[in-house]
Every structure is written in structure tokens, then in C-alpha cells.
């Protein structure tokens, strides 16, 4: 064991600059990898959170609807008729994906508007008659919203169908691109890191090829010969992983926890240590695998009996 540790240490010291550069590469790439794992978890969290709140709003016609050019299926100067309203309701009730339907009258819409924008000068000039009746619909599966929208938008008396997907989807597309982009860059960097480990071990094995040759002819076991190289690679891999875990802990503690405790942001879904700790374990495992695997590959040549 003493021999093994001594050989490991001398290997690390001999390649000091290489060791440092390997650690830095592993650190950066694993930190990026960890950050992208956290981003993925966070995006899922946000998505679930926001998509759960999404409801579809079908605004019904009032007498002004057709006039201002956003007519939808409205007839100029006329409110939605009772028949039309009931037809819309029955379509919604028949849809298997509809969970709850909430109908809001003009009066209720007006009151809600006043409550929300009471101080706003626009509110003063608005009358109840200018408001629109609304069906607010909650879906069982918020991801599958297209069907309901298509059905609603062709019905008589519907002025406009609004749902948050049209706003959120582009937003999530950008976030998704970022998420996969970071993960991709992290993987390329990880590849570079493991190749660097392979290189440093190859150099180590090459400088020790005489010793290895003699160990083999005197009957040293494969494990005995391999161990210093494995430990050397693990040293860089594990230190890089631990530094990366430190970065992740920092992200969680200083960024996520700070944001989520902020009053206006607290209502969003935020990842917690429950998601970050497993991600750190994944990073550690990836660090170990990416240092052990290349070592086994490059030392094979020197260990063949």
C-alpha cells in the first residue's frame, strides 16, 4: 500500500502542471454539467408550476367587439346571445379534457377589473357594458390544450380565445434551447476532460514503463500495477467533481435560495436541496467514471501479460 501511495504521489507531482490542468478542466466541465442538471430540474419545476395555473379564457362578444376589428365570430353591434352561450358551455362540458368551467358575467368582470386596476385612470372611463363575458376553463392535461382552443375558436359568439401557452411556449423554447445547449457544451467539455485524463495517465504509464515491465516479469498482480494509475486519475477526477459540487452548492445557496426567498419571486416553483443534492451525486459519479474509464483503456497496453 505504501508503495502504491508513493507511486501515485510521484506520478501526480511529476505531472504537476498536467494534474492542475486536468483538475481545472474537470472542474469547469463538471460544474457546467451540474449547472445544466440544475437548470433542467428548475425548468421542470417552473413548467409544472406555470402550466398548472394555465387556464383558457374564451372572451364572448359584446356590442363593440365586431366594430374594433377584432371581431372573431361576433356580429356587429350585438352581444352574445343566450343560445350561443349555452352552445359554448355544452361544447366545453362535452370535452373530456375539461376539468372545470367558470363563467364570469360582465358585472363580475367589471368588478374584477376595478379590484385589480382600481387606481388606474382607464378604470374610471370603463363601463360594465364594455366588459366581456368570459368562460375560464381549466384543463385536466394542460399540455394538451390545442383541441379545446380549436373547438372554441369556431363557435358563434366567441370573440377571442386566450391562453397562456401562446406567451409561455416561446419562453420555454428559449429556456429549453439554453438547457440543451449548456448540457451539450458540458458534454463536449467532459469529453475533453476525460481525454486529458487519458493523456496524463498515458504519460505517467510511459514514464514508468520500465518499472511496469519489471513488475510484470517479477509477478506483480495487475491490480497492484494498475492501482497507482487509477488513484492518480481518481485524484484529479474526484477533486474536480468536489469543486464542481461546491459550485453547485453555491448556485443553490446564493442564487436559487436568494431568489426564492425574494417576495415577488417566491410564488414561482424553485428547486431545493432535494434536487441539488442528487444532482451533486450524479456529478460525482460522472467524475469518477470519466477518470476511471480512460485510465483502464490507456493502461491496457501496458498491462497485457
Amino acid at each position: 500500500m505504501r508503495h502504491t501511495l508513493r507511486e501515485t504521489w510521484s506520478g501526480l507531482r511529476r505531472n504537476m502542471s498536467m494534474t492542475v490542468s486536468v483538475i481545472i478542466t474537470m472542474w469547469v466541465s463538471l460544474a457546467l454539467f451540474g449547472a445544466s442538471l440544475m437548470t433542467i430540474a428548475e425548468v421542470d419545476e417552473l413548467k409544472g408550476d406555470w402550466y398548472d395555473r394555465i387556464e383558457i379564457s374564451a372572451f364572448l362578444c359584446n356590442q363593440d367587439s365586431a366594430a374594433n376589428g377584432l371581431g372573431g365570430n361576433c356580429v356587429e353591434g350585438e352581444n352574445v346571445t343566450g343560445e350561443q352561450r349555452e352552445a359554448i358551455r355544452s361544447v366545453l362540458e362535452a370535452d373530456p379534457n375539461v376539468e372545470t368551467i367558470y363563467y364570469q358575467t360582465k358585472q363580475e368582470a367589471y368588478e374584477e377589473f376595478q379590484a385589480t386596476y382600481g387606481d388606474n385612470p382607464v378604470g374610471d372611463s370603463l363601463t360594465v357594458e364594455q366588459m366581456q363575458e368570459v368562460f375560464r376553463v381549466k384543463l385536466k392535461d394542460p399540455q394538451d390544450y390545442q383541441g379545446v382552443i380549436t373547438k372554441l375558436s369556431v363557435l358563434e359568439g366567441v370573440q377571442n380565445v386566450q391562453d397562456l401557452h401562446t406567451i409561455l411556449d416561446p419562453f420555454f423554447r428559449v429556456i429549453n434551447a439554453l438547457k440543451w445547449g449548456t448540457l451539450g457544451i458540458a458534454c463536449v467539455l467532459l469529453l475533453a476532460g476525460s481525454l486529458q485524463i487519458a493523456n496524463s495517465i498515458r504519460i505517467s504509464a510511459f514514464t514508468r514503463r520500465r518499472e511496469i515491465g519489471i513488475m510484470r516479469l517479477t509477478g506483480a498482480s495487475t491490480t497492484y500495477i494498475l492501482l497507482p494509475f487509477l488513484l492518480e486519475a481518481l485524484f484529479s477526477g474526484v477533486i474536480g467533481s468536489l469543486l464542481a459540487c461546491g459550485v453547485m452548492a453555491g448556485l443553490q445557496y446564493f442564487v436559487v435560495d436568494t431568489l426564492s426567498s425574494h417576495q415577488t419571486l417566491a410564488s414561482f416553483g424553485w428547486i431545493g436541496w432535494g434536487q441539488t443534492c442528487p444532482a451533486m451525486l450524479v456529478v460525482l459519479a460522472v467524475g469518477v467514471v470519466l477518470s476511471v474509464l480512460p485510465t483502464l483503456v490507456v493502461t491496457r497496453k501496458y498491462l497485457r501479460v
Binding site: 518499472e211 515491465g213 510484470r216 516479469l217 517479477t218 509477478g219 495487475t222
Partner: peptide, 21 residues
């Protein structure tokens, strides 16, 4: 593969080029 070291412990080898460290 893993038995070969045991064999080599039974056989000492010397060479023309000494092979010392």
C-alpha cells in the same frame, strides 16, 4: 490473465541487457 503473475513468481528471469531500474 490473473494467474500469470503467480506463475512468474515461480520463474526468475535474467536478460542480456540486465533491465535494472
Amino acid at each position: 490473465q490473473f494467474r500469470v503473475p503467480r506463475l512468474r513468481r515461480k520463474v526468475g528471469m535474467i536478460f542480456q541487457d540486465f533491465r535494472l531500474l
